[in-house]
Write a protein that binds this DNA or RNA. Structure first.
Lengths: 184, 184
DNA sequence: CCCTGCATGTAATCCGTTACATGATTGG
DNA sequence: CCAATCATGTAACGGATTACATGCAGGG
């Protein structure tokens, strides 16, 4: 239930509407915890029912401004202090690597080059974001920079790995097995 | 729908029962694409209905041995060649980093140390696995080693990042704000 | 004979995605 | 006045997790 805590965290920085929060998810949290509009409004309702947030005011166009309650703040702290991230990782990109022997060596290398390229592009995108937020000094941005640095290192690491993996696939001679898709 | 392709991939290495496949998921694919028993039997049924796999033989204790069909092999190749991984990444560990200003500096550092430790432990676990599979030379293991190397680099990277982040948090003096949980 | 491991299945529930549906306000 | 943006909500569907439920076979 991390969406719930993401919302509590964002609202702890200050009150906001569902729409405001959606924008925050699209900008700051897009690479870390994506969420859709549907999900967000649904969870806001549930948080309000549970008394962790309240509607502080209603504005134009049916806008509801939510604020976190003391109970909500407690819940956030408890999540941060007393629970550990349950990291069930699914990497489709790596799953494909397991089955690379079912396509030709050239296609396998093309796949790895593609991964390299994507990591390069995402790295560039994050570097740009890093420059954009450079002037800001608020707590949220300071924390965000820690996460961003992780992303930069992650993409650099993936590029280096892809280079290594390409060399590895090239070295592992499969010419003895000209039709690797049907090993029998 | 990657579970489907994971199953097709495993069955392309040779026929197996649901139980066999479950063991493979628990060993080889646990860190890349975890799947539960329920999910697996359900998907096997759907794959059989779709004609991508067939029951090659039925053994003792109701054991059904599945084998991939030509249609299934085509589907696997198509997945590998003509689709790109849709990487929606959710990192609860990083989400928490965004809200580190809601706990004390000491607690924040303790959290980062914990991440370091977990990465260290997972690295050790993967290194052990690496030694265990060292003698094997089959295609599946060769590919698996590529994925494993990514995991080793990932955990090394995360450790280095955690060290950097701890220094960063220590440098960012928050003594001026003695109650960072309630910034107002 | 009993325990462990082999072996399969179903049901409830939750979370996430996509799509549909609607309407108010503001700036050009 | 029209388009873009602000703003919220619901419904259908699919995938994942947890729990429940059952039973056979082989080794000690």
């Amino acid at each position: 239930m991390s969406l719930r805590h993401a919302l509590l965290g964002l609202l702890s920085e200050g009150p906001a509407s569902g729409y405001d929060l959606l924008k925050l998810f699209e900008s700051s949290l897009a690479n870390v915890w994506p969420a859709t509009q549907s999900q967000l409004y649904g969870e806001l309702g549930r948080l309000a029912d549970a008394g962790l947030i309240t509607v502080r005011s209603e504005g134009a166009r049916g806008r509801k401004e939510y604020a976190v309650t003391d109970a909500g703040r407690d819940e956030l702290r408890d999540w941060l202090l007393n629970t550990r991230p349950a990291t069930l990782k699914r990497f489709e990109m790596l799953l494909r690597v397991f089955f690379l022997d079912h396509i030709s060596q050239d296609d396998a290398i093309a796949y790895l080059r593609d991964l390299h390229k994507e990591a390069e592009e995402q790295h560039a995108q994050l570097a740009e974001l890093s420059e954009m937020i450079a002037p800001y000094r608020d707590n949220f941005t300071v924390n965000g920079r820690l996460a961003l640095e992780w992303g930069l290192r992650f993409n650099r690491m993936t590029q280096e790995w892809a280079d290594w993996a390409i060399a590895e696939v090239e070295a592992h001679d499969r010419t003895a097995n000209p039709d690797p898709c049907k090993p029998e």
